[in-house]
């Protein structure tokens, strides 16, 4: 057992981690942030995607004790009060979500893409979300929503 300190969505947090506590498990079960989902626990589905020091990671593969002192951003930290981020609002307006299980991971992958590349092509969006599995939408509305979010950010 070790005490792990993280800055989560800008707020300092401390928790006790067992060796098998992954970053995902810590977020969900110790910090009460259930946006990131446990899908495959293999790094294959992307539903647990969060930003670790600004970069997207599959948090199910990260032992929490290895990232002590890091910055973590989750879907819960994107909205400013009632005002959703451009990506969130575009997903909502564009019906880019059905069951919603993949949505937090999709949105964090999209946020990471737009941070690095504010004007992505459709193909670049497809590559950016290639690690996020959606079994409902067929991806097209999601790709359109990410492009829409990029457009909104430019206005």
């Amino acid at each position: 057992m070790k005490i792990v300190n993280l800055k989560v969505n800008g707020v300092g947090k401390a928790f006790i981690a067992k060796p098998e506590t992954t970053l995902l498990l810590a977020l969900r079960e110790q910090l009460g942030l259930t946006g990131a989902k446990r899908g495959c626990a293999q790094g294959a589905c992307g539903s647990c995607t969060v930003l670790l020091d600004g970069e997207p990671v599959v948090s199910c593969l990260v032992p929490a004790v290895t990232v002590d002192g890091s910055d973590v951003a989750t879907v819960e930290g994107l909205a400013d009060g009632d005002k959703l981020s451009h990506v969130q609002q575009a997903f909502l307006d564009g019906f880019a979500t059905q069951c919603g299980f993949c949505t937090p991971g999709m949105i964090m992958s999209a946020e990471a893409l737009l941070d690095r590349n504010p004007n992505p092509t459709r193909d670049e969006v497809a590559e950016a979300i290639s690690g996020n599995v959606c079994r409902c939408t067929g991806y097209e509305p999601i790709i359109s929503a990410v492009l829409d979010a990029a457009e909104r950010a430019r206005l």
Partner: peptide
């Protein structure tokens, strides 16, 4: 590297 896995896996 772009032919390998996905973005959130390549970060790790």
């Amino acid at each position: 590297v772009r032919s390998i896995a996905s973005v959130p896996v390549r970060t790790l």
